[in-house]
């Protein structure tokens, strides 16, 4: 069984995001990066499936980007991925171009399962997995918080929706996008990270994949969001209720 785990390289969630003065993007000169946390959850799930189902499961981490991505792909190897594959690409992408590129990777690699984060924490789009499933005409299960095999090629997936926890059954091959509560990703140990430095990262060009990923979403500008509230401290419950009633008039 082959599992592909597409990952995205995003600014570390510990970083404070600052916008360039011209609004063309974020200040990225000294940013630290990480694997998108939802994708790390997807990778953890793939590794757990391999641990449960044995050595005939192969887990491949995918990255789309320039050589800078290799450090995150090495983290994926250190966590336990069998292979890492980088699609060499140096431009902008959007969920559409990512889905197009991943569809080409899927046609080449022929996996049984694609596991990926439900959204990337930079653009918060929450689209690529669904678009990929649509392009492949595969089953999809988004926002997964529990994945169980009910048959060798049939999965029960619990999905976190606005209405509650929904359960669906899907057949492989399929695309599953992961939510927060699916698992707690393992850390890559230092020895594993050192070892991963010597392991190969396969690289493929967009040309070899036969794709020219053209984004359809164009960023016109980014604006910093500031909140202009000044907190008024109140002494007790009585004063708070009075303010809400007669000053803010919200109750």
């Amino acid at each position: 069984m082959k599992i592909l785990v597409p990952t995205k390289r995003v600014p570390s969630t510990d970083e404070r995001v600052r916008i360039r003065p011209d609004g063309s993007g974020i200040e990225d000169a000294s940013l630290a990066y990480m694997i998108n946390p939802f994708d790390a959850i997807a990778l953890e799930e793939a590794l757990q499936i391999r641990e449960q189902r044995g050595s005939n499961v192969e887990v491949t981490a995918i990255g789309i980007g320039n050589a800078d991505f290799e450090s995150e792909l090495r983290t994926a190897l250190a966590m336990g991925a069998d292979r890492a594959l980088r699609v060499d690409f140096d431009g902008c992408h959007d969920p559409w171009s990512v889905a197009q590129t991943l569809a080409a990777v899927v046609r080449r690699e022929k996996p049984d399962l694609v596991l990926m984060g439900k959204q990337a924490v930079d653009d918060d789009a929450n689209q690529a997995g669904q678009m990929l499933a649509g392009l492949l005409d595969w089953p999809q299960a988004t926002f997964a918080s529990k994945i169980e095999f009910v048959e060798p090629a049939r999965l029960s997936v619990a999905r976190e929706t606005d209405r509650g926890l929904e359960t669906i059954l899907i057949r492989l091959p399929a695309v599953i996008t992961t939510d927060l509560r699916l698992n707690e990703p393992r850390y890559a140990s230092l020895p594993a990270l050192m070892k991963a430095k010597k392991r190969p990262i396969e690289t493929i060009s967009c040309q070899d994949l036969g794709v020219s990923p053209e984004p359809k979403v164009r960023l016109v500008r980014l604006e910093q969001v500031t909140i202009d509230r000044t907190c008024e401290r109140v002494a007790d419950a009585a004063e708070l209720v009075h303010k809400l009633r007669y000053e803010a008039k919200v109750i």
Partner: peptide, 22 residues
Amino acid sequence: TTFAKDILPRAAALLNAAMAGD
């Protein structure tokens, strides 16, 4: 909502269409 987030990106892919959410 999660209804639209689940379904519309897939519909967009079928239509070769771009999408902006939220």
